[in-house]
Write a protein that binds this DNA or RNA. Structure first.
Lengths: 214, 214
DNA sequence: TAGATTGTTAATCGATTAACAATC
DNA sequence: TAGATTGTTAATCGATTAACAATC
């Protein structure tokens, strides 16, 4: 079971490469060198080559990288070349905002279900998707082969809801609740802790203010 | 102008310490050792002590750390001991979700203004805050001494909107747009790239599936 | 005092950058 | 062929962990 040895840091950068390559592709650029890309992205060319070579020799000496080819290869690495159905647990403001956000669909992530335990929301439709009661979760997951769940419930319910999701067969949780989930290690958890992000902003803000220098 | 030498990695962990200490405080725990905290948080005790000692000797040999004291010290470091007024630029789904989210206020971040360039939204109220047209941005920022702006506009408008914010005096941008902003270095930018987060989740998901082992 | 636990230095580990031979 | 640029190895840098003397 040797854990695929790509470092966390590299994986974190992969979507950003993908974004820049997408923009290059749109602008009709056919090929790009690590040096040129490094300038655009504000990273070292060395790092770009090292990162990409974790996955394979996508480039060609003397030429650089073919934008379209590299874009597609990274798409495969990230799994955005296929459709992933996703459900959202917790249909409050954030859950609805995620459901409404059409851009995820472009990367293959399709919201197919919305759930909540607040009966006032039952039947409400967001982008044509009806909010369902939690009681219907188990059957929905297995009937639709859902693997990804976005968790946008209050902190107090997050842990037990996550455990339920795992029991029902969910393989990956996109966690927006302000808590750690501590699930079996084969379950993928990607945390989005907005309040922590805001605190980091604040930390940096008060320090740039201290020394008023430009 | 020597850049305050605390490493990015340490700052990233600070809000998580704060969260755990808050929970300990709520549960009535008076003191905690780095060893005990390390077990709860699943990090090494050594790291905790190293991290905290970047900012000062908050502990006491033979005793550990006083929970309330440490909690308050970290609050000061993060700047969550004071109120920060924040405006939201882009009052679509995500902007409204952020405005509706009451928890930020507990950490001192208060949404005081909502803006959009879609006139259909003008006058709409979210938690009592009216959506204003972008034309009123400049005066609002200076009149209310706003330093923080959450940017939840479409990617295509993000860069020029950010530049406008900086021109009007904004010091920190919480960027939800799927693009890099590239602003003067004295401007704090904290990125929340949700689609990149989802791609990382996807990356890890397809790899745990590949080797079906538990 | 003896035990506990920090603050801090030293050792290890990993990630980034530099350099260059391979090759298109 | 000559020039360009990769893939990859080696050198550097930084972050994490281990160890332990200081001290409450």
């Amino acid at each position: 079971m040797e854990k695929n040895g790509i470092s966390r840091a590299v994986i974190k950068r992969l979507p950003r490469y993908y974004r820049y390559l997408g923009e290059l592709l749109e602008s009709g650029t056919e090929r790009i060198s690590s040096g040129e890309l490094s300038q655009r992205m504000n990273v070292t060319a060395s790092q770009i080559r090292q990162d990409l070579n974790n996955f394979g020799g996508f480039g060609q000496q003397g030429y650089g990288y073919n934008v379209e080819y590299l874009y597609n290869e990274i798409a495969k690495l990230l799994g955005v070349d296929k459709q992933h159905n996703m459900i959202i647990i917790g249909s409050g403001n954030l859950g609805q905002a995620l459901a409404n956000y059409t851009n995820f669909q472009k990367s293959g992530f399709v919201v197919t279900g919305l759930f909540d335990n607040n009966e006032k929301l039952y039947g409400k439709k967001v982008r044509g998707i009806e909010v369902l009661p939690m009681e219907r979760l188990e059957k929905f997951i297995s009937a639709n082969h859902i693997e990804i769940a976005a968790l946008t419930v209050p902190k107090s319910e997050a842990v037990k809801t996550a455990q339920m999701l795992v029991k029902y067969g969910i393989k990956a949780i996109w966690n927006f609740a302000h808590t750690d989930l501590d699930l079996p290690k084969e379950i993928v958890v990607e945390n989005v802790h907005l309040s922590e992000s805001l605190m980091r902003l604040s930390y940096n803000l008060i320090r740039t203010e201290d020394c008023g220098s430009v």
